[in-house]
Amino acid sequence: MAQIVDARGFSCPQPVLMTMQEMKKTGKGQIEVLVDTDTSKENVSRAATSQGWQVQNVAEEGGGYRIVIKKDA
């Protein structure tokens, strides 16, 4: 079961901070991040990649995005 980070409505750097926190907490696995601006989408994706996570999927959802990030080991 993927962890969900709901960062909708928050402006930068909040979505990145929330994602970083979750990545730190879980260490690996799958996290779904909900954001509602393109800036947040780009920033979260960039932050995840820089931490060694993979951006698996970005889907438009309810006027925002659902970003799925994953780290195996």
Binding site: R8, G9, F10, S11, P13, Q14, L17, D36, G63
Partner: peptide, 13 residues
């Protein structure tokens, strides 16, 4: 402040 949990709250569509 940001590290300590500061934020301005959510905006709405």
């Amino acid at each position: 402040f940001l590290k300590g949990g500061y934020n301005l709250g959510r905006s709405e569509k």
